[in-house]
Design a protein around this nucleic acid. Structure first.
Lengths: 245, 245
DNA sequence: CTCCTATAGTATAGTTTTACTACTAAGAAT
DNA sequence: ATTCTTAGTAGTAAAACTATACTATAGGAG
């Protein structure tokens, strides 16, 4: 046996293939905003364990794909989403509890996907009958309540994902990921308020976002009142931004 | 074949063991501050690939341990660190590039450990001769320069870890993790300045941290000038804090 | 002993941000 | 025309932040 090799090297070269390995999966948290509430896509389990419980969509990671590719594959397989439109993806956390799946050792890398509701509704038009995506959206706050049956450690994932989104809403532009290409400022403000879970002052809010948006020139009418201007997100990376205080 | 099972379930129950799986490893980023610079512990590779290049310590994840346990085991194996004193650990990111290790598919979960230099120096007293930890500390900024040979994707990890620390320094208490139990405010300020990579105003800084620290009653003398008070971090979770702006 | 230098620590003025109120604007409904 | 509703703007007091100037206390030089 080659004494020049470090232990690590030794392990890597000679024994790794013969050791038992955990499986690696990706679980996907597809968030959207519906009826002014943060919602997440879940399916009902039709098998043991956690029969009847709600669970996140997931796939096993293949040998020829990265985690991000697996997450996107998972998204495509569940939603029938066509290439082209861009979806916000972000790695969330890697979960490794030894018995998190009672059947076998699975390490799961969770990913967040943020999708405007309009886009999910678009996708529903090309779904095979039955299974409409929109009908599988659950209000995050309600899922997190005690007593709700969520499979595996997926409730922890949702809690963690919700917090991540809340934190990032403060200093990044992720709120825009929940909105369509063009939107009004009241819509944008409402989105921030939902994510941050607090109300904001209109005048202050507008000052803060003014450098992140630009007018499209169009207006939208949404009821018996003054119409509002349509905006779009200005291109380019963040120039710094801080919304919630 | 049971048609009641979802595809996912089907995979999990019947085929997962027979599929090829990636290996799962943990790589550890041990950060400390030395000579007023952010440094990281690295070892020199004595084998192909990347012979002579610097790399992070890592271990394969065992079937009976979580990722966090593997990270701590890695730390103990490299440093001889005794149980008792508390070290800050945090999961950083999971790296999955298909050829990130040219020998085989390894998915690596990176962890950050923040250690006060004094503690590494303590550990050195119980090291087997040779291999002093302190001598394997490298200045992060220098490592990230072009031309420096860092093995695998470990340069990306270091870059990412550095940014994480910088960001978290602003709104969390991680700066304290680089300091011993007791410290002076100029020391704390310097730590923040190193992590945030900018200078801060003394008076303003002190106002901001005043609720996070408490006086020990002792003083320290460090030269031909007024001595400074010793402080310790106040217990309890963050009450909110924002240092760099 | 006095003065000088160096760093510890404090006081405070000026600026920006935040919290909040009050207004005008523009559509629909009556 | 009047009223209702939401869009959008103006302005202000209080709080927080930025920046500078100050005092305090040690060692060392003369």
């Amino acid at each position: 046996m080659n004494q020049d090799l470090s232990e690590e090297e030794f392990l890597r070269r000679y024994r790794s293939e013969s050791y038992e390995k955990p499986s690696v999966a990706v679980d996907l948290l597809i968030f959207t905003i519906k009826n002014e509430k943060l919602c997440i896509y879940m399916t009902k389990r039709q098998a043991h364990p956690f029969w009847g419980g709600l669970c996140l969509p997931g796939v096993f990671v293949r040998m020829d794909e990265t985690l991000e590719e697996a997450a996107k594959r998972c998204f495509v397989e569940k939603t029938g989403f066509p290439d082209g439109s861009e979806i916000y993806f972000e790695q969330l956390y890697t979960w490794s509890g030894i018995h998190r799946d009672p059947r076998m050792r699975i390490i799961s890398v969770s990913y967040i996907a943020l999708v405007p509701l309009e886009q999910l509704q678009q996708l529903d038009k090309v779904q095979p009958e039955g299974m409409k995506l929109e009908e599988q959206l659950f209000v995050v706050e309600e899922l997190l309540e005690k007593g709700v049956e969520v499979a595996f450690d997926h409730k922890d994932m949702i809690e963690y994902g919700k917090e991540r989104i809340k934190n990032k809403a403060e200093y990044s532009k992720i709120a825009f990921a929940f909105l369509p290409e063009t939107f009004t400022l009241p819509q944008l403000q409402k989105t921030y308020e939902i994510l941050l879970d607090k109300s904001l002052y209109k005048a202050n809010f507008r000052k803060k976002v003014q450098d992140m948006v630009e007018e499209t020139g169009e207006m939208v009418l949404s009821g018996a009142h003054r119409p509002s201007k349509l905006y779009r997100a200005v291109q380019g990376e963040m120039t710094e931004c801080r919304i919630g205080k």
